[in-house]
Write a protein that binds this DNA or RNA. Structure first.
Length: 283
DNA sequence: CGTTGAACCTGTTTGC
DNA sequence: TGCAAACAGGTTCAAC
């Protein structure tokens, strides 16, 4: 569910209601995906949420303590595969797998739901946040074409692996990697360093186009993604290759195939996205 | 540097 | 129908 467009959708929704709100109380369920549960319960009450930001696939809530002691905190939330984050009124029934509730000072609740618990919740000081998150790659919607070309240069990994690597670019996941590669007519097993100038140009254009369109439509709702208000996205209706094995390519009609690249299902059109002929390195 | 496979969890879909 | 296998939007780690 949650790649860059879905996280951005959630962030935009939460930004309408969270900034300025104080955290009154923290209630936790299962905590095996939380870095330091005791720290949340100890340090969060009394904090005020000043903003809602996105950093790759992370939701970042900058906090200030009303004592004004100077050391600001950042609550970071990663949705993993099945995480959901939304505000609810306290009388609304608790969804199954609700593992964290942040009670706000207006009586509403920010609830985190995650059946598989592949997500992550952690509290960082501003300084530790900077050092830990600066290591991630550039934002795909902000990186320049020149920088993108520089990133690709010398990378012997397959382009699909690079797109999924959050230290290469931050925020792209399996759906948007495949959708972008299809639009750019690049086979997922092509090597990054072997992409031509024109290939790189098309790929970055495709990434920008696909991510922007997905954000505009509120993300992709495969089975259960909903935004901060509980509404599903619509970009799944616009998927051109993802999860379309055996169906016709929207561009040329050839049969979409699925192969495993970088350990993940990768959908591509064998005609539009021709397989690379890697030079044989042995013997 | 790179790749692969497994692990972390639960739920849903698919196949025999 | 029933049960088991396969699969799922992500990340991390060990082993090669």
């Amino acid at each position: 569910m949650p790649e860059l467009p879905e996280v951005e959708t959630v962030v935009r929704g939460l930004r309408q209601v969270l900034p300025g709100r104080g955290i009154a109380e923290v209630r936790l369920g299962k905590t095996d995906f939380i870095d330091d549960p005791a720290a949340l319960e100890r340090d969060l009450p009394g904090c005020r949420i000043t903003d809602v930001r996105r950093w790759g696939k992370y939701i970042v809530l900058p906090l200030e303590r009303d004592a004004g002691s100077g050391d600001s905190l950042r609550l970071i939330i990663h949705l993993g595969m099945t995480g959901r984050l939304a505000t609810r009124k306290p009388d609304e029934p608790l969804a199954p797998h609700t593992h964290a509730i942040f009670v706000l000072d207006d009586g509403r609740e920010l609830r985190y739901i995650d059946p598989r618990r592949f997500g992550r919740i952690a509290l960082f000081s501003s300084a530790k946040f900077e050092s830990a998150f600066a290591r991630l790659g550039a934002e795909p919607l902000e990186v320049s074409e020149a920088d993108f070309r520089r990133l690709l240069a010398g990378r012997r990994a397959m382009i699909k692996a690079l797109l999924l690597n959050q230290h290469f670019l931050r925020g792209i996941g399996n759906i948007y990697a495949d959708e972008s590669l299809w639009r750019a007519r690049l086979h997922p097993a092509r090597l990054g360093a072997r992409l031509s100038f024109a290939d790189a140009h098309r790929l970055l254009e495709a990434i920008r186009h696909v991510l922007r369109a997905a954000i505009r439509l509120g993300g992709s709702s495969i089975s259960d993604f909903v935004d901060a208000n509980g509404l599903p996205g619509e970009f799944q209706l616009r998927h051109r290759v993802y999860d379309r094995e055996g169906k016709g390519c929207f561009r040329c009609g050839a049969t979409i195939r699925r192969v495993i690249v970088a350990g993940r299902s990768s959908y591509f059109c064998p005609r539009c996205q021709p397989a690379p002929r890697h030079r044989c390195r042995k013997a």
